[in-house]
Design a protein around this nucleic acid. Sequence first.
DNA 1: CGCGAATTTGATCGACATCAAGTACCGTGG
DNA 2: CCACGGTACTTGATGTCGATCAAATTCGCG
Lengths: 229, 229
Amino acid sequence: MLNRSFVRPAARPDWGRRPSADSDAPPFFAGCPGLLVSEFSYGRNACICAEGDPAEYVYQVVRGAARSYRLLSDGRRQIGAFHLPGDVFGLESGPTHHLTIEAIVDTTVRIVRRRALDAAAHADVSVACGLWTMTANDLRHAEDHMLLLGRKTAAQRVATFLLEMDRRLSVAGVVALPMGRGDIADYLGLTLETVSRTVSQLHGDGTLGLSGARQITLRDRERLARMDA
Amino acid sequence: MLNRSFVRPAARPDWGRRPSADSDAPPFFAGCPGLLVSEFSYGRNACICAEGDPAEYVYQVVRGAARSYRLLSDGRRQIGAFHLPGDVFGLESGPTHHLTIEAIVDTTVRIVRRRALDAAAHADVSVACGLWTMTANDLRHAEDHMLLLGRKTAAQRVATFLLEMDRRLSVAGVVALPMGRGDIADYLGLTLETVSRTVSQLHGDGTLGLSGARQITLRDRERLARMDA
DNA sequence: CGCGAATTTGATCGACATCAAGTACCGTGG
DNA sequence: CCACGGTACTTGATGTCGATCAAATTCGCG
């Protein structure tokens, strides 16, 4: 039943802390005066926050990527979302995190205290609406993903995934995936072998170009979109 | 591929409109002065709102039940949630609905205008937080459901479903399901035959008591919870 | 009571999982 | 720069769970 190597979340690393600095990622709650933002880095596979932890911080990816997931008792894992540069994650309405979140590669994030954000929301309704909108966007993504997990075929899942990553991180027509086949499989509710086979097939029929397993060129977005249904 | 009869959403019925009245369901945004609440009824399988519609109203179930879902182009359907008495649904942060919502049985809802709610949220931060919290609760449910759809076995899905319905609508130890096997299947990402077989098996081994297909007694919640993993 | 819809049950099929090698890739150290 | 080792990925053979196809039954309701 265990379909992956089971890496227990590591303790939060202390290295990498550095003073807040400007960067090229989009602003994090710009226009909120007095919101203290700091930067923090995590090594590959480091745990950023665990299910059940008090939700003390909200995060924004500056560089790198993260995965958030839930586990079944036997280790089966469902990744609910990938967080890429610019994305905000770890935002909760309640007191604790519902998902475990780990860095996929070496990752730098900005963080703000949840309490500070609450205060800003109370002072300014537009901040409160911003928080609501971010959660609503996450909900919309989850709704789309439920349709994928419940009803799409393996080929459709992979096509949807590639189009999503193309939209979110393609540069010069090339998608440079930060995550491996195992993470993709746990995101799509498949096994890594099925993901690999499906990608190979799309490569074989010319829909994809590959330069290494993680450098993918979408040669036929039309066809991918048609598969997606 | 079509795994269900395909009923196109009916037009919103006009019958059933009645003056706002107190009822036994929990209060709908209690403590918001000047929020005009009215009541509205829908027949079995009537469409309450469709994907893409402007999100003009927010709803609360008074009596009955509703399903919200998305469709693939070939008619495969994924139900994201069931809405039972007391539940608020159709709440959007953006301008349009993302899911189609239909009455499962004859259903009465309370409605408030989305604009009125926005106004109340701007006047009172606690209302804004309440809206955020409701969306966050929906998100949590969706996260749980992604784990179910992506990684649980058929038996685990049915067990999870029965425990959810037990929690949400059991009266005197009996769960009276408003929805049929087809709706359950589209909620759990299975076929109706698989749902039926799994329920039959749980009945056979004494875990469930049945009085008609939709009157279910959970005789062994412990076992269901253990199956659920 | 009788009709149509919902549900159950049975037989078979197929998509994806599992088990099992083999191969490519990448970082490290010689 | 290349050899090495480990991890990630690919590919192949086989198995299985749930889907599909196809009848019975049963249920709910007029």
